[in-house]
Structures are given as C-alpha cells and as structure tokens.
Amino acid sequence: MVEPLRPVLCWAILIAMTLGSVAAAELLNSRQMIFAMIFGVAVLKGQLVAVNFMEVGRALPVWNTLYRAWIVVIGGVLLLAHLFW
C-alpha cells in the first residue's frame, strides 16, 4: 500500500504539476507528446488525489481497486482517442 503524503506537500505537487502541464502544452510541438503529457499528468494527479485526499488505501479493497483503476482507464481511453481518432 502507498503511504499517503502530508496534505500540504501533496497539494504543492498537484499545483506544480498543473502549472507544469499547462506550460508544457504551450511549449511542446508534437501533438502526440502534448496529449501524452496532459493526460498522463491528469492520471498522476488523479492518483495523488485518490490516495492522499480520498484515502482510498483505508477504504474497502474493492473501492481502492475500482477507484484507482477508473482513473487509469479513463485517462488511457482519453489519450488513445486523442491519438488515434
């Protein structure tokens, strides 16, 4: 099980990732790179929120699995659709 971070540290990382992904979306030239970066960052931020704010690690295993899987699956589907549709 992943140990939760301190809330303020987690918040600072989330803010930095948000600002970083917006800046990178402006600076990168390749559309594939942009899509991979923004949806990849969204999945990582989602996992941080689920583990540290929702505390899914303390929930029943079924919720822990479903919530964390949803974040990965939805991010993956959004990325693949933007790359190949």
């Binding site: 992904s21 917006v22 979306a25 559309r31 942009i34 899509f35 923004i38 949806f39 960052v41 969204a42 931020k45 989602g46 929120v49 689920a50 929702m54 974040i71 939805i74 991010g75 959004l78 933007h82």
Partner: peptide, 16 residues
C-alpha cells in the same frame, strides 16, 4: 477528481 479530467479534455487539447 472529475475536474482533473474535464480541464485537459475541454481546455488543453484545443488547437492541437
């Protein structure tokens, strides 16, 4: 959490 996906989907993929 929802907004973390709505934000890139609506606002960040534009123009690319």
């Amino acid at each position: 959490l929802l907004w973390l996906f709505i934000f890139p989907l609506i606002y960040l993929t534009g123009g690319h």
